[in-house]
Design a protein around this nucleic acid. Structure first.
Lengths: 246, 246
DNA sequence: CGATCTGTTGCATGATATGAAACTTGTTGC
DNA sequence: GCAACAAGTTTCATATCATGCAACAGATCG
């Protein structure tokens, strides 16, 4: 474990969507470093293009080199590129935002986000991790998850995000049975008020869930009446992607 | 300049699309480090999630943390998010791949890539830098570039990529005059045989080029007959984005 | 103008990253 | 089945190199 590299990585991770620009002092305080140390580490990171200075103020922000490197991340790369056209299709058909997500431990991680045409911007969820029980993608995965893993999810306490979040494991279990029956999962304002989503799992030939596709949008557009139709579309998309993978 | 951080960054940059997975020896040789040093640096990077080990072979590849961090890169973030729906629209209308690019020094850097529905995968160009004179986006920017900068481009030797690459500065200058007349730029197999593209610049109120939008596809789909129609569409998209920015 | 906050730069110190070599582990060849 | 080889990790002594302090330089503010 090399200390200076660890510290440099910590500096990178100190940035987030709330604070896209930070000064040396802010950063050193967050990470717990001397400002002189932080200053030199940041200068090195800047030299590498991993951070940059904002022209006006002299604060730091994450650099474009990260975007370039992220393009080479091969993890799930095949799945992503394979799925992309299908996802674009789904976004066009539904005029809503589409996500592709996979299971990572006991969380869902978003691999891809495709905005529908004509829509206002939506926050970027790519790379974000969420629990399984309160998002549509997570539920779609959970529904087909075999026993040792799924039991662990039900056993752990289920965090409450809104008043619609399901925190009762028995209720969740029953809902998952229904997901297996109809093929798609639904989450209505369970992680964020007003955010509705429908998702379907992409399973391998053994029936194990590999990934999930979702369509999501504001409650006033993704209404209860539309859910059946959207469900059919996400299931179709998931089936298409699964077909391409095998 | 902190040596170990510089070396760690060099290790990250040693990965590219040709070699997505590398062993400790490969990496140490590429960067010019002792394998023991490389081993420790990589272990640290792995701990930070910036690289991961491939489950089967124990080689390293870039980690998903990079994708997460890249999502927070705010550089041109506004432009990107603002442009995204328009780009998605353009992709849907043309059924071809759409790119958004900006000028970075004397090169073009791709910020965004949107795949059209129904299409086979295209290589990822996001983050890649290309010269100005042989890609449609670059020409669109070059055409509106004011004198001190554009003169430097024409003065420098123009690299030849295919037999259709324009390497004569006078010819290029004349073509740029035509771009200013019709509003869009065209590149036909000038950086890669069989890759055709049409692009238009997004200019600020002073007429300075800020970014460019392009539509590209294989030569058999992006035919000379379609170019006029595609030109009109990219110009419309560029105008829409420019309008949203001001 | 003094006061305060932010960020960079010398400098002495010793903590820490380094390279050589030893040691594992896995693979290939005979 | 064993030897030879390659890839990777670990140990250890060494001195390099990162560190923290303090002083300095700008900027902002009252």
């Amino acid at each position: 474990m090399i200390q200076s590299v660890q510290r440099a990585a910590a500096l990178l991770k100190a940035f987030d969507s709330d604070t896209p620009e930070l000064g040396v002092n802010d950063l050193s305080r967050r990470v717990g470093l001397h400002k002189s140390t932080a200053s030199r580490l940041l200068a090195t990171l800047e030299h590498a293009g991993l951070v940059e200075r904002v022209p006006g103020t002299e604060k730091y922000r994450l650099g474009f080199e990260l975007v370039r490197l992220a393009g080479y991340v091969r993890h799930y790369g095949d799945l992503r590129e394979l799925a992309r056209p299908v996802l674009a299709d789904l976004a066009a058909q539904t005029s809503e935002t589409v996500h592709l997500a996979v299971l990572d431990g006991d969380e869902v991680i978003n691999l891809e986000q495709i905005e529908a045409p004509h829509m206002l911007r939506e926050a970027n969820w790519v790379g974000r991790r969420t629990p399984l029980h309160c998002v549509a993608n997570g539920k779609a995965l959970l529904a087909w998850l075999p026993d040792p893993q799924s039991a662990a999810i039900y056993a752990a306490p289920l965090a409450q995000y809104t008043d619609r979040t399901i925190t009762d494991p028995h209720l969740l279990r029953r809902q998952m049975a229904q997901v297996r029956r109809c093929g798609y999962a639904v989450a209505l304002g369970e992680i964020e008020i007003g955010l509705h989503a429908v998702a379907a799992a992409i399973c391998d030939r053994d029936g194990l869930p590999l990934a999930a596709v979702s369509v999501s949008g504001p409650a006033y557009r993704v209404t209860p009446q539309r859910i059946d139709a959207l469900g059919a579309l996400v299931v179709a998309a998931a089936t298409t992607i699964a077909g391409r993978m095998l």
